Computed example of a mutant assay.
Amino acid sequence: MTKLTLGTHPYMLGFEQLERLLERSAKTGNDGYPPFNIEQTSETSYRITLAVAGFAEGDLSITLEDSQLVIRGRQSDDSDGRHFLHRGIAARQFQRSFVLAEGVEVGEAIMENGLLHVDLTRVEPEKIVQTIQIRRG
């Protein structure tokens, strides 16, 4: 018995891209840093919140790359002349990736109290009924 995937299932036509997105999201390599929340703020909107204590707005970048939201952080080394007895606040770079469904748009990003909020909105596609004419061959 052969295993059916989305791309090979006889009733699921054109879903090869979805299968590639699932494979890509499994390979993003997110290691748990920084911690984040995803909340649904309404029927059609979401908010991703990342804990980015110690990062300034200029240390962060948010890009949308082929339906993948990528948030990167890189702090500049500001420990010149400072001697730490203990350094427990992480100052490492990170990359967090989120695969977005078709129709999900990225809204604004807000820094507040060490948290980065990124708002997303799902745009409902217009429902279209199309009649296909049958012609004699």
Results as ranks from 00 to 15, higher is better:
M1E: 10
M1P: 08
K3P: 02
K3Y: 05
L4F: 11
L6A: 15
P10S: 01
P10C: 02
Y11G: 07
Y11P: 04
M12K: 15
G14M: 03
F15R: 01
F15C: 09
E16N: 13
Q17D: 13
L18W: 07
E19P: 00
E19G: 14
E19M: 04
E19Y: 10
L21Q: 07
E23S: 12
A26F: 02
D31C: 03
Y33G: 01
F36S: 04
I38L: 13
I38G: 08
E39P: 00
Q40M: 12
Q40I: 13
S42C: 07
S45E: 12
S45V: 06
Y46H: 05
T49L: 13
L50S: 00
L50E: 05
A51P: 00
V52G: 02
F55Q: 00
A56F: 11
A56N: 14
D59Q: 09
I62C: 02
I62D: 04
I62Q: 03
S67G: 05
Q68N: 15
I71P: 00
G73C: 04
G73Y: 01
R74A: 06
Q75Y: 03
Q75W: 01
Q75G: 01
Q75P: 08
S76G: 11
S76M: 12
D77M: 15
D77A: 12
G81P: 05
R82Y: 11
L85G: 14
R87W: 11
G88T: 04
A90V: 02
A90M: 07
R92I: 12
R92C: 03
R96M: 01
R96W: 05
S97L: 00
F98V: 02
L100E: 02
A101E: 07
G103V: 09
G103Q: 06
E105D: 10
V106C: 14
E108Y: 10
E108T: 13
A109F: 12
M111P: 04
G114N: 08
L116N: 03
H117R: 13
H117S: 11
D119G: 05
D119S: 08
L120P: 02
T121Y: 06
V123H: 15
E124V: 13
P125H: 02
P125G: 07
E126L: 14
E126M: 08
E126G: 10
K127L: 13
K127V: 09
I128M: 14
Q130A: 14
I132T: 14
Q133T: 09
Q133M: 06
I134H: 13
R136H: 13
G137I: 10
G137W: 08
